[in-house]
Write a protein that binds this DNA or RNA. Sequence first.
DNA 1: CAGCCCCTGTACCGACCGGTCTACTGGGGC
DNA 2: GCCCCAGTAGACCGGTCGGTACAGGGGCTG
Lengths: 205, 205
Amino acid sequence: MEPRKSPGSAPGSTPGRLVTTTAALLRERGFHGAGLTEILTASGVPKGSLYHHFPGGKSELAAEAVRQSAAGMVAALERFADRAGSTGAAVRAFCDRYAEDLAASDFRDGCPLAAVAAESGALHETVRREIGAAMELLVGTFARRIAAENPAHPDPAALAMEIVAAVEGALLLAKALRSTAPLKTVSERLAGRIAAELHPRGHPA
Amino acid sequence: MEPRKSPGSAPGSTPGRLVTTTAALLRERGFHGAGLTEILTASGVPKGSLYHHFPGGKSELAAEAVRQSAAGMVAALERFADRAGSTGAAVRAFCDRYAEDLAASDFRDGCPLAAVAAESGALHETVRREIGAAMELLVGTFARRIAAENPAHPDPAALAMEIVAAVEGALLLAKALRSTAPLKTVSERLAGRIAAELHPRGHPA
DNA sequence: CAGCCCCTGTACCGACCGGTCTACTGGGGC
DNA sequence: GCCCCAGTAGACCGGTCGGTACAGGGGCTG
């Protein structure tokens, strides 16, 4: 827990590859389901390098991967929101994107955070904290967007929380049912409701 | 989906204890996080008995546990719905109940299905199928209730799916954030919306 | 061109994983 | 009264787990 948190995670570097592949494995198998050996062979990195860059072992690596996944999700959201101009449309794009991932992976790649979050009860504090922070970050980002779109909204945080919960749940349902239908249904209804709530008397944006 | 799949799972019997403790462990740790030895010691059953009653090993046991968990959730839902008289109120009671579980377990016990569903990509077909069936059962139960409460509703299945997704997501969020706030927020807003959608011009039930 | 040191590669470790096997026990049917 | 076998008990298996130790290696310094 030194001040220098994760400086050496350049995309192509050894730590970078390690974190990226870990994030991918974590996404479809969860923490206990993703073996260290599997991560190593998939990223083409020997064990010695792992413990050089991440003395904390699997937990530290997972924590970093969770942070990167969260950052990726937030970045995607910001991008969609900027392009679409409304939170409702951004949510739709967001769901579409993860529906694609799901379908392309034969319904193995769900939410990058969900698999780890679901078993957070059996995880080290390091990872546990990171998962909490990741969720807060995601909710906070939505809340900021909502407040920006309609400064008069009474409770942006509540709406943001509802959005994240709905999307997260839809992703889980989609994975379990092996169908993108839940995502389509939820995003459609959710987007409409967000628009209605953000612009009570106006154009649905 | 045979009518008689697991006849020997009486509550107090050896298979019964096995399935119940497995369900509990699965709920907080997921499939790979719950060790077989741990299940055995927690239920006070030796290994020989396990493989006598469940020749399929851990996967068969987990599949059975998932089925039992799903049945329990459905039963709780039906009970709440019967007592409350409206789907909206039932959802609220449903969320309250799982919020209690969460808080009582120091935020380890989330949705009994979520942890397994989240890592379903790395599971045997047996378990995978059971998780899908469980989710379908849950959604179907909600849909039936909705249709019963308002036969004119245009798409009970869609609303049911949205409900399950929202609750599932709220449970996940609550577990990650170690707070029941997401559940409270989501259930409140969800219940209100369900009432509005089921009784467009009338009493909010 | 020598030395150093960050990083890599790999052999190895004990613990534990899920699963198999066999010995034993006790109670109901004949 | 005997037997039989469903059910229990636990020793044991190979494999894999996450983690450690240490011997190179190679590029940047001097």
